[in-house]
């Protein structure tokens, strides 16, 4: 289903991931979150921005385990656990946050 962002129509795949990674802009995340009845806070953006930086450097969307470890290292142990990440992204920090960040589905997610 395509999504409407700032007057533009963006293609997505059958699971809602952006078809063209280059079309991402912050409002893509806002629009996707709204469809999930979620209001994005600074804490959400920390994770989304981290994922985008990770993809930029390594060309893959990290698995949840990798994300959790990396967040813990960067933002402290209180945030580097799945409880905290699931509280932000109830549909799964890997899948949901990657989708908002305009990344493909994490490798190793089934």
């Amino acid at each position: 289903m395509p999504i409407e962002v700032n007057g533009k129509t963006l293609e997505t795949d059958e699971e809602g991931y952006l078809a063209n990674l280059n079309e991402w802009e912050p409002d893509v995340a806002t629009v996707m979150a709204k469809e999930d009845d979620l209001e994005l806070t600074d804490e959400h953006w920390d994770i989304i921005n981290f994922l985008r930086e990770y993809y930029e450097e390594f060309q893959i969307a990290p698995a949840v385990r990798v994300l959790t470890k990396a967040v813990g290292k960067r933002m402290g142990k209180d945030k580097g656990n799945s409880k905290y990440l699931y509280s932000l992204f109830p549909y799964g920090p890997g899948k949901q946050a990657c989708k908002y960040a305009g990344l493909p589905k994490p490798t190793g997610c089934v």
């Binding site: 390594f58 990290p62 385990r65 990798v66």
Partner: peptide, 13 residues
């Protein structure tokens, strides 16, 4: 796609 950067992520895994 250049997949060389992925080898640098292996440590995270």
């Amino acid at each position: 796609k250049n997949f060389s950067p992925v080898y640098n992520a292996l440590g995270d895994y």
